[in-house]
Design a protein around this nucleic acid. Structure first.
Lengths: 337, 337
DNA sequence: TTACGTATTTATAACGTTACAAATGTCGGT
DNA sequence: ACCGACATTTGTAACGTTATAAATACGTAA
């Protein structure tokens, strides 16, 4: 055991090391560490102790090569738009759940205008993960079709109209109904709902809820043409101003997110309208920072971190063989304040 | 070639497949695909074509096992605080650069109160990445010491007082000077600077710049006790209110971020002070959303995505052997509006 | 004592890749 | 025709793990 010239690359202990130190064969070590009941309890304990003492940890690459399992969950992020820290919160939720499992989190982000399918196909084809996650689903989402077809585990934020799969969704129809109810209670009679990205499933649910509630109350409801979810704030602001001008302007606005709310409040301010008198705004809120926005407005909370945690658990369950039908969560809105 | 019973597990092509189809040996295929000039140009081209036709992609696990290189960059995120989408923007910057390389991005997030060192030690010990990234450095950052000691490639957002390493930093001293100058130009004579997280390097730079500028102008400058960077907005709001009350209250505030700015503006609103008359606020801005905040305030921009891109490139360069001393960027503030 | 079932452990091969050493082919010079 | 130098290609082994099949030990019934 001469510690000579080549600066002793400190190599991690392997099962071979554990085998030598413990006197068992490598195979036995492998099975013992997997807690295989075929190995005598006493042996398992001895080997576990030696492994712990040596600080042994399995080599992920070798496991992956041998078993075909990657122990990786792939997060596919939307292009960086302006949804206030949606991705960040979701990541935190995922990280919370993943932290104490054998899984790692990898991350891809497709670019604006790029095919959302590309990163997913890449992951499946090259088996880069055991499961994949993404958001912003559309009713006939091609990614969902592809993954079902491929039999690849996944979970989405947002439902589709497709065959059963694992998803988490916020009940945007309920959100819209709740929002309309509250505005009507304040005496509002002409409500504008801003719905960015008409192609997304969540938008259609929200609009359905909105239309139903507006009809039930017998008041006026306006759904403008689409506001692109990723359009720069200034453009959104300008278009909202247009909508809030004119003789038959709405006396209330429903905003499906904080950015839209901020743009709306800016428009109201810029037009010289008085909040609470001329007009009311209600928004979906996902970040506590918004509590500091002045003037304060009525909000309905959506907890993105919790969404992330639920989705992570669902995906792990699906990878373990749970039926996708059992892995669907429709989150009810919780009133703010 | 009977396509019989076992439901034909569609297996990805390997170098062996390419070798068979092309008539060369596996070793030759390996070298050809690595564009080794030892292999005849014609052969390389033939093999490349066959590989492309088959849709061959290398198995990352096998490469990793054999070479010891992971082809992974590990992002270590701070606990999810309320810095407006800092992580999200940085991730986007990284993803932009990483996208067309052979690297993947993995992600760990340590929890509030957890040892920031833990995930990094884990990554190094188990060789889970070829390089690592993190932010919020302290002058004597133990993570930096550890990584230098271990000879492990890394890049930080924020400098340290330690031996040369790769970093990206925003010139917060310059930011503070610029902010003071602008406020003084507006006639302000008593400036408060809010500095969350005194332990971080950026805070000391900012305070140094602030003190120097205030002294140069011969005006009053106040640096309050620390505001924890992750404290809930409402608490920050309350503490700022305290600071803005009383007979000798400051007539201007410098905010190192949007959240602090929002909390400050809320405090000003809540206290009934008039912005622009009683008091002025200037803030560092990292997101275009803030342009929609009303009332508008003067800001200085910091581009986090660009920071991410620069850091990613620096890290790749360091992994390729570049000297860390050459991988340091001090970003100058750019005036907003 | 022998045989046999059970409990436990082990040897061997393989996943897909690349480093290394060895082999083959080709050409010009003699 | 032979040799050596060079260009090009190939065989073998190994990375660390686990699935499979085989081997060993042990106790007990005949």
């Amino acid at each position: 055991m001469t510690q000579t010239s080549p600066p002793q690359v400190e190599s991690r202990p392997t099962q071979k090391t554990v085998a030598e130190k413990s006197g068992f064969a490598v195979t036995t070590v492998s099975r013992a560490l997997a807690d295989d009941p075929l190995i005598a309890r006493a042996t398992r304990e001895k080997i576990a102790k030696v492994a712990a003492d040596l600080g042994y940890t399995p080599d992920r690459a070798a496991q992956r090569l041998r078993t075909g399992r990657t122990n990786v969950i792939a997060l596919v992020l939307d292009p960086h738009g302006e949804i206030l820290n949606f991705s960040g919160s979701m990541i935190t939720g995922f990280a919370d759940v993943i932290r104490d499992t054998r899984y790692h989190l990898t991350l891809t982000q497709y670019q604006m205008g790029e095919d959302p399918m590309a990163p997913i196909r890449h992951i499946v084809r090259n088996k880069l993960a055991d499961g994949v996650v993404f958001a912003r689903t559309e009713p006939q989402d091609v990614r969902v079709k592809y993954l079902i077809e491929a039999g690849f585990p996944f979970v989405t934020h947002g439902r589709t109209h497709l065959e059963s799969h694992a998803w988490y969704d916020y009940d945007n129809a309920a959100f819209a109904r709740l929002a309309v109810d509250r505005l009507v209670a304040k005496g509002r009679r002409h409500i504008l709902i801003i719905s960015p990205g008409h192609q997304y499933t969540f938008a259609s649910h929200m609009k359905d809820g909105f239309r139903a509630a507006v009809a039930a109350h017998g008041i006026a409801g306006t759904i403008p043409e689409e506001f692109t979810i990723d359009s720069p704030s200034e453009i959104a602001n300008a278009r909202i101003k247009e909508r809030l001008s004119g003789p038959d302007r709405p006396d209330a606005v429903i905003c499906p997110g904080e950015i839209v709310a901020i743009a709306t409040l800016a428009a109201i301010n810029d037009l010289g309208l008085e909040l609470g008198t001329d007009i009311d705004v209600i928004a979906k809120q996902t970040s506590s920072v918004f509590d500091l926005y002045r003037p304060r407005i009525d909000t309905v909370h959506e907890n993105i971190e919790e969404a992330g945690r639920t989705m992570a658990q669902a995906l792990l369950d699906e990878i373990s063989g749970a039926a996708p039908e059992t892995l669907q969560t429709l989150q009810q809105p919780k009133p703010g304040f």
